[in-house]
């Protein structure tokens, strides 16, 4: 990947606060149009990484390029959208006034403001002071300002916090739209949920290091967490099924098997060979949470 196709390039990044090393050799690239979920427990250093990319704080070592520019330079800032973890605005401004200010700072015409407010569902509240708004409304205004201008990189710090399920759905749409327009997205989160699973790549931070950086499918394959297969046997056939396939009896008629991804098809063939001894089959692939816990625990070992 050349410098020109990476919207965001981070190499060997270190950050210490006094003696506490918060980031330790983080290397991460994000291509235009790519959505990367940045996962980690509270205090893992996600917000610190984002602030370094924004140039709000200085790194102790390593390098960052934002669309080819140094972090914090005017060109890098013009290319970057940011949704802070704690979205805060001036209480005594109305939503429209606040967004107009940001539009003018981003070099956009104030005419861009009304459609954006509409886009995030704030048209009705737009002329009330932000001090009277709910957390979710402020979050949506934060999203609206991140949509201003044509940004090449978007950094969203825990964007789902404070959003109800419908707003969360709108957020997915906004993220996909930005990616379709070629914006590179880095989305920080402390959990692996539906949103993060919809991204192209997942980067997991633990103990100041990047412990994983791959697509969800590849991470699942590498972790090779077992798939749970639950069979319901015909009346009286449970013993025979267990004798044939192994596994554990869960109650009178069910047998539970665990198998790796590689063994799955072979295991299924053996199940179907049993004919009508098996009445039902249920397969549970490892959950997102299982996977996340696996990679975080990996670091601790």
């Amino acid at each position: 990947m050349t410098d020109r196709d990476t919207a965001l390039a981070i190499a060997g990044l270190d950050k210490s606060y006094g003696r506490a090393q918060v980031l330790n050799g983080i290397t991460l690239d994000v291509a235009p149009g790519e959505r990367v979920a940045l996962l980690g427990h509270n205090g893992a250093g996600k917000s610190t990484l984002i602030k370094l990319i924004l140039g709000l704080i200085r790194a102790s070592g390593g390098a960052i390029r934002v669309a080819g520019h140094a972090p914090g330079s005017p060109a890098a800032r013009a290319a970057t959208a940011y949704l802070p973890e704690q979205v805060a605005f001036h209480r005594s401004l109305t939503g429209r006034e606040q967004l107009t200010m940001f539009a003018r700072l981003a070099g956009e015409h104030p005419k861009a403001v009304a459609p954006l407010l509409e886009r995030v569902g704030l048209t009705e509240a737009a002329d009330r002071r932000i001090g009277t708004w709910s957390k979710g409304m402020r979050q949506r205004l934060g999203l609206a300002q991140a949509l201003l201008g044509r940004r090449r990189v978007a950094l969203l710090d825990e964007p789902t916090s404070g959003l109800d399920p419908i707003s969360r759905h709108d957020l997915y749409a906004v993220i996909d739209e930005m990616a379709a327009n070629g914006t590179a997205l880095l989305i920080a989160s402390h959990a692996l949920t539906e949103l993060e699973a919809r991204t192209d790549r997942i980067a997991i931070m633990a103990g100041g290091r990047l412990v994983a950086d791959d697509s969800l499918a590849n991470l699942a394959r590498a972790a090779d967490l077992p798939t749970r297969i639950r069979l319901t046997a015909r009346e009286g056939a449970a013993d025979a099924v267990q004798a044939e396939l192994g596994g554990t009896r869960v109650n009178g008629r069910a047998v539970e098997l665990h198998c790796t991804t590689g063994q799955k098809m072979a295991q299924l063939a053996r199940v179907s060979a049993l004919g009508d001894a098996v009445r039902d089959i249920e397969m549970c692939p490892p959950s997102l949470e299982d996977l996340y816990r696996y990679y975080c625990a990996e670091e601790r070992r």
Binding site: L56, P74, R77, T80, L105, A106, G107
Partner: peptide, 9 residues
């Protein structure tokens, strides 16, 4: 509010 404003050019 300062952090967000300063991320603008």
């Amino acid at each position: 509010t300062l952090g967000l404003t300063l991320t603008y050019p």
